[in-house]
Design a protein around this nucleic acid. Structure first.
Lengths: 237, 237
DNA sequence: CGACGCTAAATTGTATACAATAATTTGCAC
DNA sequence: GTGCAAATTATTGTATACAATTTAGCGTCG
């Protein structure tokens, strides 16, 4: 069900089979912005949708809440997370904090094969940018995140990899909420620049480019506090 | 139930009440090394212990598995995590990667009050080191981790704070498994040095000290692969 | 006409029941 | 007595049932 760069990812999971699938499906839907922030995810609905009992639906929603994609409120249910501007800032602050280090670690271990895989991912990303239609747009969103995920995978640290998965997914939510233009075209070329620096073993430049890249994404956000909805609109979604 | 530096921590949780308590209780037991790595945590036992149904016990164990403290194997149950040497390396690599950045961020925001709180935590830590007895030893373990957690809390980034909670907790497991001497005395003075650097607004020195501190902890580990237990001992725990 | 309060419906919280899988014991043959 | 196999027991996986809480609808009252 996952598309592109899954040869490297080892999702660690040894546990549940069904829950895993449901969790991944919902996560993909959130990351690809088919599910808008704030959308209610009732246990019955989710269970019905995947033909399982509420037990498993609930477990999947719980799991998603641990990665910050779903917020579950006691006695009220689960909702697609609606990150506040402050949360958004913290997510990007975390990315600025960890991504250079991850990149540095990846640069030390990267093989020619992996460099080629990165290039290929970039190509795919570029191809999708040319296409039209919602589904191409979704794949493009996914591919642009997969670049950062693949770098994390190359770093060889499963813990940082998992953490980056969380950060990338939550970033997608933030961009959905606060993004202004579709910054993707600019982001795409920046990915390419980073790969080039990596090819030349220029770690410092790569890290700088990465920081700029993150800053660019963040600069496209309009992180003003939305006044907490006119009393009614907030609950009539 | 938590002891010292909880004024700063906001566990975010809005969900379950009972599950939360169980999760925290088991986590404390693991971090304080009352539960040895590899110990089986059967759902019935956990539920019985806290007077709740298997449903809630299971939820708590799932939660713990998401933070890497418990590993649940399909159809076999949950066990206190038994990190491999490779995992241990990755945990400390992750700490080296993020703690300088967290410290830097904390240094920018720290207030005199918080500096005093850090000093006080250090004092408490030192006091416990003098005491004898298992319970003092446990409190000491906790306090030494709380130093890093408080720095993360001061950084003001809830995401990095949560991540550090995971890393500190998992470190405790690693030390329980692979630690040689009780390195705590040396670690204690290093905590003090970091605070001093912080007081003098010397961020670079503070970061260097932090890296050395982490390196010292890691240097005390014997990360050789234990041959996978002589066939019987592995299952007769 | 809007605000308050009550009842009914829907949804979540928790426990229990049953099915499926793994661990243990028993029994038999060698 | 040892080794293997079947049966028994225990434990996890999943669904369902019931309790508690919230939400929605509705009628009354100001």
């Amino acid at each position: 069900m996952n598309s592109s760069a899954d040869g490297l990812l080892t999702p660690i999971d040894s546990t549940e089979t069904g829950v895993q699938q449901i969790r991944d499906a919902i996560r993909d839907a959130i990351v690809e912005r088919r599910l808008a922030p704030g959308t209610k995810l009732s246990e019955s609905d989710v269970g019905g949708l995947f033909n399982v009992s509420r037990t498993l639906a609930r477990a999947a929603l719980q799991a998603l809440s641990y990665e910050g994609l779903v917020s579950v409120e006691k006695n009220r249910g689960a909702f697609v997370a609606y990150p506040s501007p402050e949360e958004a800032r913290q997510i990007f602050a975390a990315r600025r904090l960890v991504e250079p280090g991850i990149l540095k670690s990846a640069a030390e271990r990267i093989t020619p094969v992996q460099l080629r895989q990165l290039r290929q991912l970039l190509l795919e990303e570029g191809r999708l940018m040319g296409e039209r239609g919602q589904s191409a747009r979704r794949a493009e969103i996914k591919a642009s995140g997969d670049f950062h995920l693949m770098v994390a995978a190359i770093s060889g640290n499963l813990i940082m990899q998992r953490f980056m998965e969380e950060l990338v997914a939550r970033s997608s939510l933030v961009i959905a909420l606060y993004g202004q233009s579709s910054v993707s075209s600019c982001g795409h070329s920046e990915h390419g620049d980073i790969i080039t620096a990596l090819e030349q073993k220029d770690v410092d430049t790569a890290c700088h480019l990465m920081l700029h890249h993150i800053a660019h994404i963040e600069a496209d956000l309009d992180l003003r506090e939305r006044k907490s909805f006119g009393l009614k609109e907030a609950f009539e979604r």
